[in-house]
Design a protein around this nucleic acid. Structure first.
Lengths: 350, 350
DNA sequence: GCCCTCTGTGTAAACGATTACATATTTCGG
DNA sequence: CCGAAATATGTAATCGTTTACACAGAGGGC
């Protein structure tokens, strides 16, 4: 492996000068610059990042700690992160970890010295412990309960998004709106549920516990929950699933049971994954700009790193957008005069 | 930041002894061991990986270079990689890069000194340049054209999988089988197309260019291609899409055009993403063990690292599995006596 | 002609770990 | 009871960078 010394020897210069050229620090004559660049390029010299980080105590690497994520969400959030990181000359060290305290602490430990900061996604409601993370380095909490102790955090506007979708359903005249909830201990899930309840209350509807089903964000859970809802003697006329995967599972169950969507049952999801529009019928959903979420998280983190973490703590949220497609129809089972529609509509592409 | 010196001072021992305890190298008295472990734990000492890598010239980090990947594939492959890496005490440095020569070389360059080896996924057929990678470190090529120059490679049994699926369709009596191809310059796509052609030939069917449609692995492409196929005067009776996303797009198009699947048109995909079984009708597909693919890639890489890359080059492939669901039906448009069914069947879950 | 400020370059001390070698102590066979 | 072998610990060199400091020469104001 060629080192800075090799380059210096070859160029008949000292290592200091080579370093100065390559980091554009300090004055160097144009001729020397040219020479050293040429030699370094020819020898394919790349500085050893370990040695560099030893002296500068910067690694130019960001840690990313994720729980078990599936599908679209994972890839999109990483895409956003990597773009922003690369643009700023940073690398991404990615690791999956159990969401509990121990898992996260161990993982952060293991990253110490390898990263300048960490994005932690720990959606578990019970992970109180994040309060006293070994945060000698900047941390950004992503889609996690925003803790008070001075850690930046970034979340989705879950509550607002859910509330808007359910409000849309009530505006269509639905009175019995079921929800398929996300995992019991999941923060996003809890917030979406809160939005659901809020919208019902605002529409003067009393929540019916039999319409509130447990789920876990998988298609299978949506499928099962939908069947249970159909078995009720007093059926709902609409189902709001806390994410698209469950909504798709529900659609599948309804189809098998011969229920017409949206005529007999309206269905809505959350996330707006690319597939949503290719469902039958195309699925109404709450759009989440996942990629942007990752990008913002990294931006926050980089800011924390640049300012040595002594800035006012931020608590940001990315906003969602209602996307109404056919699965929520316009004609609920129990009719009521159609409301004026101010939400943005979108149909299946040509 | 607490260093090994701090620990040594606190424990009233030399750094050498501390290092020996923490790395279990060399003889140390039990009492000293206990003491040092206690002190190190109390002080929350974590060795600086940069310093360590400087002297050991190992980073215990693996680089992963991926192209623009979407959805399931990305997350699954990373899951498999991370599991195996963690189990062996390694970290994952992940980066997206353009698939062309320059992009990959730059990315590998940027990783030098940070990683002990790299998994490169470069599905672009034209990326001949991979031949002379700056491979001072072990490299494993994933889902890429296997190059001859002594780089380990790991691919999917694309050709075989596609061939089996198309053979299944011909066995059902289909004579006019269309294909929606993957991206023109994509290796996996090319192989799947090869399998398609192979199966046709084996069934004594002459390929019809009008039934071979260009695609790019997106739902939108599948949607468009399916519409084009429907517009033909001499329509196919079955559509084989080179991946599930396109198959789903095709299903959507067929549905909108009022075509009954599988009665009027059979549809099959490739990948068997989780959603496949929740389609209407549930989508027949070629199952790819993506997670395992990632795990195997890392295993290969670790092997290369342990053996300092001087082992015989390997070229492995993970095998696919036919999953027949309803979208391929059993009754093609043009009847023929049903064949005995030896393939594994699977229906929508309860 | 002198001092001061630039410019361009080199020397050597960090950074935090590992480890070969040295040293001190104990164990033990004969 | 001696010397060898084994055990336990310390000293210091080393890895590849960056950078404070030193220094030499050039240019310029007085």
């Amino acid at each position: 492996m060629v080192t800075i010394k090799d380059v210096a020897r070859e160029a008949k210069m000292s290592v200091a000068t080579v370093s100065r050229v390559l980091n554009a620090s300090g004055p160097v004559s144009d001729e020397t610059k040219r020479l050293i660049r040429e030699v370094a390029g020819r020898m394919r010299y790349v500085p050893h990042s370990g040695a560099r980080s030893l002296i500068t105590s910067r690694t130019e690497t960001l840690g990313v700690l994720l729980p078990d994520l599936y599908g679209e969400f994972f890839s999109e959030v990483i895409r956003g992160m990597d773009d922003t990181a690369q643009r700023n000359g940073f690398h991404l060290l990615i690791s999956r970890a159990y969401a509990d305290r121990h898992g996260i602490e161990t993982a952060i430990r293991a990253m110490r010295g390898r990263v300048d900061g960490v994005v932690v996604m720990s959606p578990d409601l019970d992970a109180k412990s994040l309060l006293n993370l070994p945060s000698t380095i900047p941390v950004v909490l992503l889609c996690s309960v925003p803790r008070g102790n001075g850690i930046d955090s970034l979340t989705i506007q879950n509550c607002r998004g859910a509330r808007e979708m359910v409000a849309h359903l009530t505006s269509l005249g639905h009175k019995r709106i079921a929800i398929i909830k996300g995992s019991a201990r999941n923060y996003d899930a809890a917030e979406r549920f809160r939005g659901y309840r809020m919208a019902l209350r605002e529409a003067g509807i009393t929540p019916d516990p039999s319409l509130e089903r447990e789920g876990d964000f998988t298609e299978a859970a949506g499928y099962t929950a939908a069947l249970k809802l159909l078995a009720l003697k007093n059926r709902p006329t609409a189902i709001f699933a806390a994410n698209d995967s469950m909504a798709i599972g529900a659609l599948s169950a309804l189809r098998q049971s011969g229920m017409a969507v949206p005529e007999e049952m309206a269905v809505a999801g959350f996330d707006d994954i690319p597939l949503a529009r290719y469902m039958d019928p195309p699925l109404s959903s709450v759009h989440v700009p996942i990629c942007e979420l990752g990008a913002k998280a990294v931006e926050l983190l980089l800011h924390g790193i640049m300012h040595k973490n002594d800035h006012a703590r931020r608590r940001e949220r990315v906003s969602t957008k209602l996307v109404i497609r056919r699965s929520t129809g316009g004609e609920p089972a129990e009719r009521s005069p159609p409301q004026p529609q101010t939400l943005n509509r979108e149909m299946v592409p040509v």
